[in-house]
């Protein structure tokens, strides 16, 4: 429906049995033309959310809609202009790549043949070999092609770049950006901020079934920690580093200093370190679980 958001969820919840609350009261709005990154550690509820949006599982309570079409009551219509890449993609092993795509094209009914060829060429899809002989990455490419080949208004991708080499990851990211530039919408899940930050406009963070934050990528990066290892040419007094805002010294071992710092403190940190003779500096993004621990510590977590 014109005017409605690409994805809307209202208090969307999924409970398995009595206890397992896979998703709790998700309220979310993803606008058209946006690339939305859905981040969380494994088991946080990312795939549950996606499978609810695709109508593969039923919400325990709440509701969701794609382009204003309810995912339960109007499930078929809501999926018509949607492409989906499952997190654990299983294809028909005995078919060749092109037979599988042909079959899926007939199943969908509306496919842009030229777009399909273009995508296959662009990603270097292996079309003439049985799928069971293909590597994980080559299967994943087939999954990406089928998600895009009907030029959907919304693409939902569960960990799309899993199994792809860095070159292809970049190609897929470019594809996602182009999709958004067309005014179409991309919703992708990931467990790595690094993977999402180059492509997403906004990021939602989910933890233990609850959406804890929705933020722009920039502000999330500013708040997220880096792990920095500094090596000097001799032991130094670390107190001048420790006083910097947000910097925490983790370990000092002779000339080696390990610390964590938010991105906003990096400039001051490097300048402070530069007063000594620096042999090496390694800076790594903290992984998502650490970001959670740092930024989204729940009250009652015991700390």
């Amino acid at each position: 429906m014109p005017g409605s958001a690409a994805i809307e969820a209202f208090r969307l919840s999924k409970t398995y049995g009595r206890e397992v609350r896979a998703l709790v009261d998700l309220d979310l709005r993803v606008e058209r033309g946006e690339v939305f990154g859905y981040l969380g550690p494994n088991g946080a509820g990312k795939s549950t959310t996606i499978r609810l949006l695709l109508g593969l599982i039923r919400p325990t309570s709440g509701r969701a809609s794609l382009h204003g079409l309810d995912t339960v009551a109007e499930g078929v219509a809501s999926r018509r202009s949607t492409g989906y890449l499952p997190g654990d993609l299983r294809l028909a092993d005995r078919l060749t790549g092109s037979e599988q795509l042909d079959s899926l094209a007939r199943l969908r009914g509306t496919v842009d043949e030229r777009l399909r060829e273009e995508l296959c060429e662009r990603l270097g899809v292996v079309l003439d070999r049985p799928i069971r002989q293909l590597s994980r990455g080559n299967r994943q490419k087939l999954g990406i092609v089928q998600a895009f080949m009907h030029r959907p208004d919304l693409v939902v991708l569960d960990e799309p770049t899993a199994g792809l080499d860095p070159l292809l990851q970049a190609e897929v990211r470019a594809l996602l950006r182009q999709t958004a530039a067309d005014g179409r919408t991309v919703f992708l899940s990931s467990h790595s901020l690094d993977e999402v930050q180059h492509v997403a406009d906004r990021v939602g963070i989910i933890r233990s079934g609850r959406l804890v934050d929705v933020d722009s990528v920039e502000s999330l990066r500013e708040r997220s920690l880096r792990h920095v290892t500094l090596t000097f040419d001799g032991p130094v007094d670390v107190s001048e580093l420790a006083v910097l805002d947000g910097v925490r010294i983790a370990a000092v071992d002779g000339p080696h200093v390990r610390l964590s710092a938010p991105e906003t403190a990096m400039d001051a940190l490097v300048k402070a370190a530069a007063r000594h003779r620096v042999v090496d500096l390694v800076s790594q993004p903290a992984d998502l679980e650490e970001i959670f621990l740092e930024l989204y510590r729940e009250p009652g977590d015991g700390s």
Partner: peptide, 14 residues
């Protein structure tokens, strides 16, 4: 069981 219904039922068919 083989996980192949996931993709098929995500398509627009009843």
């Amino acid at each position: 069981d083989a996980g192949r219904l996931e993709l098929v039922l995500s398509y627009p068919l009843r």
